[in-house]
Simulated scan of single mutants.
Amino acid sequence: MPSNTASLAFSSAEIAAVYRVIAERRDMRHFLPDAVDPEVLRRLLWAAHHAPSVGYMQPWRFIRITDPALRERMHALVEEERIATAEALGERAEDFMKLKVEGVLDAGEVLVVALAEGREKHVFGRRTLPEMDLASVACAIQNMWLAARAEGLGMGWVSIFDPDKLATLLSMPEGACPVAVLCIGHVEAFYPKPMLEIEKWAERMPIEDVLSENVWPSSAD
């Protein structure tokens, strides 16, 4: 390793911790009812807010859901879309309906992450790729996910909902759009593998199938 690179790198233990938290992060669906320490929640939000964003636009907005009745109504929206998703899956509908896809009523904390309104004014980095606002929000969510795992908390990203209905429910302004319902809380244990692998819904693709050099991989290879 060049000397200048070595001087910028973290220690071996710190590097190992970063790769460990990436490897052990899980999309959790099963939670204990215990409350999340407010200081830990603050740190998770700090991690999310320090994510990279295209043009430094910081398009993320966070809504903490503390009203039990509001959680119930959000859960109803998720259930409505879960049934619609099952119908759209055709022959896999029965297998899908067996999956636990959310923990809205179970987790210690529920946050909604949304895209802010007025994003059209941010042109830097988005003139040809306007969807980079969404990519930036995804970076914030991933930061929070890794921080939660490092703190010993589970987190699940729920995307099974009608965004227009959720935006209305949460009184979002025109142009704002919910991206994720995040369930965060204590868990009895982390899944040894991604839950959808355990349930035989899908398997992780080999990296060779998603990596090529210089040009798009030929389907004949």
Rank of each mutant, 00 (worst) to 15 (best):
111 L>Y: 02
45 L>P: 06
153 L>G: 00
80 E>M: 10
5 T>D: 13
73 R>S: 13
21 V>C: 04
22 I>T: 05
218 S>Q: 11
79 E>R: 12
118 G>I: 06
181 V>F: 04
98 K>V: 11
89 L>M: 15
14 E>G: 03
94 E>Y: 04
66 T>G: 07
153 L>H: 01
91 E>Q: 08
212 S>F: 08
151 E>S: 05
170 L>N: 05
14 E>S: 12
131 E>I: 15
72 E>W: 09
89 L>T: 11
143 N>W: 02
151 E>G: 03
115 L>M: 13
145 W>H: 00
65 I>N: 02
68 P>V: 01
69 A>I: 10
215 V>T: 12
103 G>R: 00
210 V>G: 09
7 S>R: 15
70 L>K: 07
213 E>Q: 07
174 E>P: 10
74 M>S: 10
171 S>L: 13
54 V>T: 14
115 L>S: 14
72 E>F: 11
184 I>N: 00
70 L>S: 10
38 P>M: 03
16 A>L: 09
3 S>H: 08
150 A>P: 01
45 L>S: 06
38 P>L: 03
2 P>A: 09
63 I>P: 02
63 I>R: 05
192 P>R: 01
201 W>Y: 12
75 H>Q: 14
198 I>N: 01
210 V>D: 08
57 M>I: 12
170 L>G: 02
174 E>R: 15
77 L>P: 13
206 P>G: 06
77 L>A: 15
112 V>E: 00
95 D>A: 13
130 P>D: 08
7 S>H: 12
132 M>W: 04
88 A>L: 09
122 H>M: 06
30 H>K: 12
